[in-house]
């Protein structure tokens, strides 16, 4: 593993960027979380960059820390972080010129026991598609496709997963794409969520959130990593992401110029599952 080498390169680069005034903040990781997890940290002082770390426990998606502050921001970006930056730029949430992407070639993160995380096992993008500086790792071979996962679409599976959920909204907080100022689940009028939510309300939340993320998921697995109840609900968005890719040839965060799938249309879009439709439009 050459995390140390990559770390030294990143730290030197961040120091230079901060000292030159090219950026006023660097969003990266430092040590200090529980179970060896690295913590997101905003570096503003070149001397402070000594604290910067890069290891196999840099799990969180850093995109929540990009907005706010003066001047340009640099981000120490795993491929999924970089994809999220690109997705946010194509959704007009960030401006390309404000963000300096320090992309890192990444071989996947591990959990507290040292086992690879499920999202990282499935991951097929281990080099950031867009970056300003790339910190390469010659030991990491280029991936062509991640591990395929079978998708059980039975109601039993959905019920089993949803019954574990306690509606704590950690997945929403961890997600780069959930940036609504007021989530529909938090609204009082109309009140989507009753005081005592039942199965149906959990279904509303998960289905609603998945629809909001349709064609926007960057497959970082932050939702799953943040879940305290071990809910594996990511299979919903995985299925939707694959479906959108197949139907509209779009993958979030891969191309700065591509228009997000759900914000565009074509006259000949296929009508899969429509009444009276043959599945091939008209």
């Amino acid at each position: 593993m050459s995390f140390e080498k990559q770390r030294d390169e990143v730290a030197a680069l961040c120091k230079k960027l901060l000292a030159d005034g090219a950026v006023s903040r660097v969003v990266g990781f430092r040590e200090g979380g529980v179970e060896g997890m690295s913590l997101p940290y905003i570096f503003t002082d070149p001397a402070g960059v000594d604290m910067l770390t890069w290891n196999s426990r840099c799990l969180p998606n850093l995109n929540g820390y990009l907005t706010g502050g003066e001047g340009n921001t640099a981000i120490v970006a795993k491929p999924c972080d970089a994809r999220a930056v690109v997705a946010l730029i194509s959704e007009k949430q960030l401006r390309r010129e404000d963000i300096h992407i320090i992309g890192l070639v990444c071989d996947g993160m591990v959990d507290a026991n040292g086992d690879p995380l499920p999202a990282c096992v499935e991951c097929s993008v281990n080099c950031p598609p867009v970056y300003d500086d790339l910190i390469d790792d010659p030991d990491v071979a280029e991936k062509t496709g991640g591990e395929q996962v079978s998708n059980d679409t039975s109601l039993e599976r959905f019920e089993a997963e949803i019954d574990k959920c306690i509606l704590c909204f950690s997945c929403r907080q961890a997600c780069y794409g959930c940036y609504c100022q007021t989530c529909f689940m938090d609204r009082g009028s109309p009140g989507w969520q009753p005081t005592v939510p039942g199965r149906g309300d959990k279904m509303l939340y998960h289905a609603g959130r998945t629809m909001h993320l349709a064609g926007r998921c960057v497959e970082c697995g932050a939702c799953e990593n943040a879940c305290a109840s071990g809910v594996d609900i990511r299979y919903l968005i995985r299925e939707v992401t694959n479906f959108v890719g197949e139907l509209y040839d779009y993958r979030a965060g891969m191309d700065l110029d591509a228009r997000p799938a759900m914000l565009s249309y074509a006259a000949g879009d296929r009508e899969v599952g429509f009444l009276g439709g043959d599945g091939d439009g008209h």
Binding site: L155, M203, Y265, D269
Partner: peptide, 27 residues
């Protein structure tokens, strides 16, 4: 046109959740 994409994806999502595809209809 936007709705068409949304409904296509929604129907796939609902069937992934285990709902019968015949519960929701778009036309």
């Amino acid at each position: 046109f936007y709705a068409r994409r949304r409904f296509t994806v929604l129907k796939r999502l609902l069937t992934t959740m285990g709902l019968s595809p015949d519960r929701v209809h778009f036309t």
